[in-house]
Design a protein around this nucleic acid. Structure first.
Lengths: 167, 167
DNA sequence: TTGTATGCAAATAATTTGCACCAAA
DNA sequence: TTTGGTGCAAATTATTTGCATACAA
């Protein structure tokens, strides 16, 4: 899966993701391990969307230094979500992760051609969400909005191709 | 997965789902088979959300009359989506289907407790979608909005439980 | 020392696919 | 009769889990 995206500016937060995660582990009596430390670095280095497979691909292989088994990668990604560091959602049948801690709430446009995720923010969208929910006494914990279609670049390409076809 | 939902009123459409599907098959040189006819009946009998597994559960078993293999169920559901009869989306890692042909565009609230899907319609939401897309020259083919949280009933239950806990 | 975390491989679960046979058009 | 469709079982894919061992607190 291609996973480039246009990124929003990070917010200023009092704790680093590492510190935040430490806090999370301590309050639950869980342990700080070298794998967890290494993974949090790896994940927050990239500011992009990714799935477990892509992450594993850019991590050290078995036998190399800092190798982490994929079982642990899957387990740790879920912890990061629990800890509020990452958000996850389903796209094309796989679980996509993105940074949450330190990043503003946002939604996505998804290009069906190049599979790029483009972020956008809309207060109006959140307002509508809350209004709809309030009307039926639904307590909102979050939402997921994905606009599908064709991005600017892919729209251009297709038009170019159509022109060529006419020649 | 529980799949009850509050349903919107069907629209009036000139062709029945069956006729619409026939049309689809003919324009593509595909065949009308007894399995396809049977499945379209089964699917449009219920006005609810469902996944492949739930559908298969309420169909005749192997050996019984009108049995359809699950491979064919999966294949046919995708055809229904292609034909515009059904819509599909991912929820909790599985593919959920709902009637599309003859039903108005809408979105969902999803109760994390009872896993019920509640439908809602909002023109304002569509307007925001189109505005966001237009601003970056993105051609929209559709969208998916899911509001997560706790529905009215489950909110009540939880409060009741908390009260009991205090006793 | 004590229980949590990890790595490995096996297990799951949902869905897809290869292939021989069946049946619309 | 020709080509698409179906059923079956095996293959895939992403992810989870059981278990023995390793290690943080």
């Amino acid at each position: 899966m291609s996973n480039s995206s246009e990124s929003l500016e990070p917010l200023r937060v009092s704790l680093s993701p590492q510190e935040r995660f430490e806090e999370y582990l301590q309050t639950r009596g869980l342990r700080q391990t070298s794998q967890r430390k290494f993974l949090i670095e790896a994940v927050f280095q990239e500011h992009d969307h990714f799935d477990a497979d892509e992450l594993i691909d850019r991590l050290p292989r078995r036998g190399e230094e800092n190798y982490v088994s994929s079982a642990t990668v899957y387990r740790t990604l879920r912890e990061f979500v629990d800890a509020g560091l990452l958000k996850s959602f389903q796209l094309d049948g796989r679980t996509v992760y993105e940074l949450d801690y330190g990043y503003p709430q946002h939604d996505h446009l998804y290009c069906n051609v190049c599979r790029k995720l483009i972020e956008f923010q809309s207060e109006a969208l959140v307002a509508i969400r809350d209004k709809v929910a309030t009307e039926i006494s639904f307590r909102v914990s979050g939402h997921r909005m994905i606009i599908q279609g064709t991005c600017k670049d892919c729209g251009k390409l297709r038009r170019k191709k159509r022109k060529q076809d006419l020649v």
